[in-house]
Design a protein around this nucleic acid. Structure first.
Lengths: 200, 200, 200, 200
DNA sequence: TATGAATGAGCTTTCATTCAT
DNA sequence: CATGAATGAAAGCTCATTCAT
């Protein structure tokens, strides 16, 4: 990519990245249309390729950027000393919603990337995944297993929670007003329920 | 579609449908490549269109067929009188795994269809959805709410379970041997855990 | 072509030729669909190719056959001794309508062939044209120039008449009942008018 | 269609339209090949569709444009007050030859359109025909019937003339040099002859 | 920096032709 | 003699990418 991208006004940078995330999130790498992106971002075709060389280059950059961005949000929202599983989950949820306030499609974009099947797309994200995985694993290692019932181990509950928050986000209609607030609220409700179910 | 499709050897019909389901499931309607399908099914380009007229026609047929197929499996596996939530879930899981033994991608295909955004694709599946939704709702109405803890109502647990089984299936690597057995096993484990968590 | 075609029942031969003429006449060589032909003739795809090897072979055969057929009709209808231009024209018109009673699209087929632009098609009809051209020229040579006004020479009137009868036929709706009778009638009217206009 | 087409250099616009008219005129809508058009016009496949969306869109645009173009030529060449049938015919002939100097295939294109049988093609030209038909009918109403012989009424002569000029144009070889001059000359000769034949 | 006209490889679809039955 | 399932080259059309301005 062309580093001069960062010399653009922040607002324009975000318009471009937001548009691209949305299109990639909705259509997946292969079917994502650069035409749609430039229309959404109100820029010209040429400019997109001036900064990112290729659709693949753009995809790789966005994935990298999104991962850095959510990592920073994790660092801001997740407290070092906290060990309670559900308190940590609430902090991570806050990190995600904060991120989505800036880039509404960032989580869907990253999750769509997780399910990407296109070989080209996979080739540019493979190595980058490591950083974020490590971050979440570091948090996972802090989980206090004590309050969990014997037969509801933290690993299982953690997986369940991930599936739930992911499935729930996919269902939310992003065209509705306050969709983000509704996601936050609904997610907290699921968190509460699962806490009651899995703590002694 | 051309009804003569059903005059083909059953093995060939299944080869074609299986290949198409796989490609649609992996790529979504828009990016699904008919070239990939015919390569997977070992048939020629022309033959696919001889039977299904268009990619859209094929998609509509497959959706319809898949829905009928899984409906039959539900009727075979789910007993009329059963009311226990988790016993019913186990029966439904058996229906799905039976179906997947025949058409490994049938569940992913149907779930990808649920998230389809392409307007053309939506136009041919919209009306057909009703039948299966009704079937699952009829089952849902039988759920015995009694054994559930007050603060873990069936509806919530049912949603959670759906998200879990769906998310888990998406993660499984279908290239691995015995993936189906591993899915069945893993799913049953999640079911067990959730039962223990939500029953009094 | 396969000579065994002539061993078929005459009715079937005519059904096949009639269907092919119609499709070629309506669509021209290139766009003529063999599928349409076999549907119209109620025969199978394979049979058509069994007898004619290729679309081009069929086209060449039909052109040849049509030319022979109309030549015979000319010999039956056009009297050897007649020299009056308009009487000869009436006889030729009778030859055409007789032919069209058997093969409704024979004239349109031959005229469409005249305007054919497809190089392949042209290659198989080029040499065959000679026979019929010669026949009409032999008739043309008999024309008695005497009754014509000085400034309306027979060559010019002959061309005009050809254009008129051709243009008129193209306009007639072949789906209408009695279209052939209406063509005959209209053509005779044009003949009458032109006679009055060009004879002293 | 994409209105930006008109921002192209006039020469390029005409190259594209001329090529498309030629191919449509020669092959009819269905068999007309877009590949042939772009080769003739020396542009790429994509560009044609960038401006006209589809073959059908291009066809509709060309028909519309051609009709407007020839209408303007009629307005420039046909004098308001003239009522003599043959003088008006000569003016209309001038309009057509002027138009053909710019777009050699414009008349053949429009006449091929008149005989179009493809349902899709018909659907986009049906409503547009009205304008030009009206224009020629307005001219037809001015014809002075007085000089015509009783038994050669204007309507009949008018039909004859139309068939003649049309059939003659179809026969002319457009690859020959000066074909347009030869058409003009030949047409005038036919006009002269018919005048002498039908005027008292 | 920014544009969008232009390209051509690749996709869906059609259709003449083949061949096992 | 007769069928129609099967093929694959070629057609219409899309879209990432380039480049002159």
């Amino acid at each position: 990519m062309n580093e001069k991208f960062f010399d653009l006004r922040k607002e324009k940078q975000d318009r471009i990245m937001g548009a691209a995330m949305e299109v990639f999130a909705k259509s997946g790498y292969a079917h994502a249309s650069t035409d749609e992106m430039v229309k959404l971002a109100h820029i010209s075709k040429g400019l997109l390729f001036h900064y990112f060389t290729s659709k693949l280059g753009l995809y790789g950059f966005l994935y990298d950027y999104s991962l850095r961005f959510i990592s920073l949000e994790f660092q801001r929202n997740v407290t070092e000393k906290e060990t309670d599983f559900f308190k940590l989950q609430i902090q991570m949820l806050a990190a995600w919603t904060d991120a989505m306030r800036q880039y509404p499609y960032i989580r869907l974009f990253l999750m769509q990337a997780e399910e990407e099947t296109d070989p080209e797309a996979l080739s540019v994200i493979a190595e980058k995944r490591a950083g974020f995985t490590e971050l979440t694993q570091q948090i996972a290692e802090r989980y206090d297993r004590a309050p969990f019932k014997e037969d509801a181990p933290v690993e299982l509950v953690s997986n369940i929670l991930w599936y739930v928050l992911t499935g729930f986000l996919a269902e939310i209609d992003k065209k509705e007003e306050n969709w983000l607030a509704r996601y936050e609220e609904g997610s907290l409700a699921y968190l509460e329920t699962l806490k009651r179910m899995s703590y002694r």
